[in-house]
Every structure is written in structure tokens, then in C-alpha cells.
């Protein structure tokens, strides 16, 4: 039963790779988004899972018990999500510009850097 999350992450990676391998540049960007989801979740579970105990410390006494969820991967993922947003926005604008310059969204037509 508990292996479900591991399978879910593997599944998200599969979806991301499949989309990355498409010729359409739009799907490529969608694949990037999936890749960042999958990676976030991967980081999240490797920190160990604790149910319903956010990483807050109310007082000195509570520190001793140490049963909050691991804050470190959370901080990493928070950074990753926001950067991922910047990258995704950039990628989207890039494909928009790519299409406007080349008139296509087919990656295979991008095999040369020179303009035809």
C-alpha cells in the first residue's frame, strides 16, 4: 500500500519524459512542468513523511519532541516552485516567440540554427 506514492512519482516522471520526447514544442514545455512537479514530490517524500504536523515551533518545550515534518526539503521545494514558475513563464514566452519567428511549433524544424 505505502509504495503508492513512489509509483505516483515514477508515473509523473514517465508522463514528463513522454511529453519531452514529443516533436511539438508546446508539449515540450508541458513536459518541463511535469518534470518540476515530479521532482518537487520526489524531494518532498525523501524528507520522510509526517501526517498533519507542519514545521512550526510554538515554544521551547515543544522543540524537544521533534515530531514536525522535515522543513529542509520544504524550503528547497518552495524555492523550486517559484523558480520553476519563472522558468515556465520564460519557456512559454520563448515558444511564443519561436512560433512568431519560424511559423512552426515542430522541434524537428529547429535542427539548424540558421534562418532558412
Amino acid at each position: 500500500m505505502t509504495t503508492l506514492l513512489a509509483i505516483l512519482i515514477g508515473f509523473l516522471f514517465s508522463v514528463s519524459i513522454y511529453l519531452l520526447l514529443r516533436r511539438s514544442i508546446v508539449k515540450l514545455v508541458l513536459g518541463l512542468l511535469f518534470l518540476s512537479y515530479a521532482t518537487s514530490l520526489l524531494l518532498f517524500v525523501t524528507g520522510g513523511l509526517t501526517v498533519g504536523k507542519p514545521a512550526f515551533v510554538e515554544s521551547q518545550t515543544q522543540i524537544a519532541s521533534k515530531v514536525v515534518s522535515d522543513p529542509l526539503p520544504q524550503a528547497l521545494i518552495l524555492t523550486a516552485i517559484v523558480i520553476g514558475f519563472g522558468v515556465a513563464a520564460f519557456a512559454m514566452v520563448l515558444i511564443y516567440r519561436f512560433h512568431r519567428e519560424t511559423g512552426t511549433i515542430d522541434m524537428d524544424e529547429l535542427s539548424e540554427t540558421n534562418q532558412k
Binding site: T3, L5, A6, I7, I9, G10, F11, L12, F13, S14, V15, S16, I17, Y18, L21, R22, A38, L42, V45, T46
Partner: peptide, 16 residues
């Protein structure tokens, strides 16, 4: 492509 991506996904699952 489906084969490739499934193999990669399975690898990640195995690692976790």
C-alpha cells in the same frame, strides 16, 4: 517513447 518513459519512471520508483 512510451517504453522509454515507463522505463525511466520505473527506475525512479525503484530508487525511492
Amino acid at each position: 517513447d512510451v517504453l522509454i518513459s515507463v522505463v525511466f519512471g520505473a527506475t525512479i520508483t525503484a530508487i525511492i
